[in-house]
Simulated scan of single mutants.
Amino acid sequence: MPEVIFNGPAGRIEGRFQPAKKRNAPIALVLHPHPQFGGTMNNQVVYQLFYMFAKRGFAVLRFNFRGVGRSQGSFDHGQGELSDAAAALDWAQSAHPDARFCWIAGFSFGAWIGMQLLMRRPEVEGFISIAPPANLYDFSFLAPCPASGLIIHGDVDKVAPLKDAQTLVDKLKTQKGIVIEQKVVSGANHFFEDHTDVLIEECSEYLDRRLAAISPI
């Protein structure tokens, strides 16, 4: 899992990249929670998602948004962070140019950024959005959502309450041409404390089903 430094719109970005063994393996990008509330690429959920994709043969990149760790720049309320994520995906694609498709996984603030990125990148085949903060950020840009994916959250989440995520899921489910799956982790708070294993099991099961529906990696 080599450490990587690549250029972003606000300066250098620090990341961790797991190359794929197969030239045409897919790419996964994993996005961390809110930078101003302790979110980093070493968040436990982000770390576990990274390895979930790596175990399935993906080329995987996780990175620190601007102003976090050794990434240069300062917090930009989402706009700059979206540019960081786009630069990260560009870098991963340049490192792994024969990838057949891409996935994006994001946690909390990272889920909001990830879903904006997939609106701009037609090569994104699927997404996993963990605890998307639909009460704090506007998700109306998903009109329509261009890819099928999983939205998963805890039922005792006080930061991004279930009712707001449910409204988002219900809206997306009315769209034709995509399939939005929803999972609710019983007893889990926003950070999935003591429920990380269940969260990753649900995400793994969903990813395996999606991968089984296409030709093998």
Rank of each mutant, 00 (worst) to 15 (best):
R120K: 14
F192D: 12
F139N: 13
K176Q: 15
R16F: 12
A213T: 04
V30E: 09
S148I: 11
L118R: 07
P146F: 01
F75V: 14
K22V: 08
P97D: 01
G187W: 00
P97V: 00
E201N: 10
I27T: 08
G126K: 01
G187C: 03
L49Q: 15
A95L: 09
G80H: 04
F50N: 02
S83M: 12
R209Y: 00
R62I: 07
G73Q: 11
V46T: 11
G11S: 05
V46R: 02
G154V: 10
I5N: 15
D76P: 04
K176C: 04
V60A: 08
M119T: 13
I214T: 12
F53Q: 04
E3F: 10
P122W: 01
P35D: 05
F63S: 07
V46F: 02
G106R: 10
G126E: 03
R62S: 09
L117D: 12
R62H: 09
E14I: 07
I180Q: 14
A160K: 03
E205F: 02
L199I: 11
I152Y: 05
D84R: 05
Q36R: 13
L162D: 11
S204V: 03
N189Q: 06
T40Y: 10
L49A: 06
Y206E: 05
F75H: 15
F141K: 03
E81F: 03
K173V: 03
F63I: 07
G15M: 03
H190E: 10
H96E: 06
I151H: 12
D194G: 00
F6T: 08
P97M: 00
L142R: 08
I151L: 15
A99E: 07
L162G: 00
H32E: 09
P132G: 02
F17S: 04
V185R: 06
Y137M: 10
L136M: 09
P146I: 01
E125K: 14
F58N: 10
V184D: 06
D98T: 03
N7V: 10
A99F: 09
L162I: 11
G78S: 08
S140M: 04
G80C: 04
A88W: 02
F58R: 05
L168A: 02
A134Q: 07
V159N: 12
L89I: 02
F139P: 15
I104T: 03
D164S: 08
S140Q: 12
K22L: 13
D155K: 06
E125T: 05
D208G: 05
Q93N: 09
A88Y: 02
R209H: 06
A143K: 13
V198M: 05
K183Q: 14
N42Y: 10
A105I: 06
L162P: 05
H32P: 15
N7M: 08
S83E: 15
A28W: 14
R210A: 00
L117R: 06
Q18D: 06
V198K: 10
A111Y: 07
G38M: 06
Y47D: 15
A147H: 08
W112T: 10
G110H: 04
P122M: 00
P33S: 00
G38S: 08
C145F: 05
L31A: 04
I27H: 02
F17H: 13
S129P: 11
A59F: 06
F109M: 08
V159D: 14
Y51N: 14
R62W: 12
S71A: 02
Q182Y: 01
V169C: 11
Q175M: 09
Y206G: 08
A105W: 04
P144V: 01
D170P: 01
